[in-house]
């Protein structure tokens, strides 16, 4: 029983991070209709960014979230307004999938050239301490990671639901044409949505850096994780990402604990396929209606 509880806690902590890593992917999928296979790169780039700031300047990864996310915000905006936009307007949505796949390969290659193929971790002073509650034990980094993830997710939810910007984004997702007729600059909004997604991914990357080892090659896993989270929870909302993320975290933790660590990916994927077949819109549905 204790083991089960401990595993559950670990799973939930991991799930919070999955949720944060996926929310940008979910937003971009919901608003722009694009499956962005570069998403994992944003996550890993965030982790490398935090790594550099930590090793070179001794900046704590949690503080590094701010500059790393800011940089990726700009990169994401430019990327959407140029390459992604061109791919969609000149070719097709499926072609944009290939384009993002191609860019992911390039970026992965570039990261490998810059940092080598080795696995890295970020180790701030608190990385080895843990909290205990009776027999339960939880690493401080996980608590910190979960808290930071929840904070950012809530912030995003508030922005989407309460601000003019958020309403504009939701309007654009439902009816791009109508939104532009109402005077919204849809292109710019798409760019900003994409940029926010990239920033969230980078922020999650900085947190992942302290919780888990990472390498350039792990980008695919993070893209797939984001996709699974979206399929589990539903498209386009922070709440959906949170539900999906926590579920994925639990699946991962239970499989690793009770079946075998080699099978976590297989279990996650099995759930993905089952979910796609049984409930293609995810547990919370598509936040933007059945537009796509």
């Amino acid at each position: 029983m204790m083991l089960f509880l401990q595993t559950t806690i670990n799973g939930l902590a991991l799930g919070g991070i999955y949720a944060l890593a996926a929310v940008g992917f979910s937003l971009v999928f919901g608003v722009l209709g694009i499956v962005n296979l570069t998403h994992g790169i944003f996550v890993i780039a965030g982790a490398y960014g935090a790594l550099i700031l930590f090793t070179q300047f001794g900046i704590d990864p949690l503080i590094a979230i701010v500059p790393v996310a800011a940089v990726m915000f700009v990169v994401g905006y430019l990327y959407q307004r140029t390459i992604i936009h061109w791919a969609i307007s000149r070719a097709s949505l499926v072609a944009s999938l290939v384009v993002t796949f191609g860019v992911a390969m390039m970026a992965r290659n570039a990261l490998q050239l810059a940092f080598g193929p080795d696995i890295h971790t970020i180790t701030p002073s608190y990385s080895f301490s843990s909290l205990t509650l009776g027999d339960l034990r939880i690493d401080v980094v996980r608590v910190v990671g979960l808290a930071a993830s929840l904070f950012l997710l809530i912030a995003l939810a508030v922005i989407l639901n309460k601000t003019h910007f958020g309403r504009a984004i939701r309007a654009t997702a439902q009816q791009p044409l109508a939104a532009s007729l109402c005077g919204l600059n849809v292109r710019n909004l798409h760019g900003l949505t994409f940029a926010s997604g990239a920033a969230m991914a980078a922020a999650s990357g900085a947190i992942i850096g302290i919780v888990q080892p990472f390498a350039a090659a792990s980008e695919v896993a993070w893209t797939l994780n984001a996709f699974i989270v979206v399929v589990l929870g539903g498209i386009g909302s922070p709440a959906g990402a949170l539900v999906g993320g926590l579920l994925l975290g639990l699946i991962n933790a239970y499989t690793a604990q009770f079946i075998g660590p080699a099978l976590t990916q297989a279990a996650m994927f099995l759930v993905l396929v089952l979910m796609l077949l049984v409930r293609p819109n995810g547990l919370l549905g598509n936040a933007f209606g059945e537009t796509r």
Partner: peptide, 20 residues
């Protein structure tokens, strides 16, 4: 050759954009 992926990726992107 160590930039193989980078080059492939760049060509892919260029070609899809220029010749869908």
């Amino acid at each position: 050759l160590d930039m193989h992926l980078l080059i492939t990726g760049a060509i892919v992107v260029t070609i899809i954009l220029l010749m869908p």
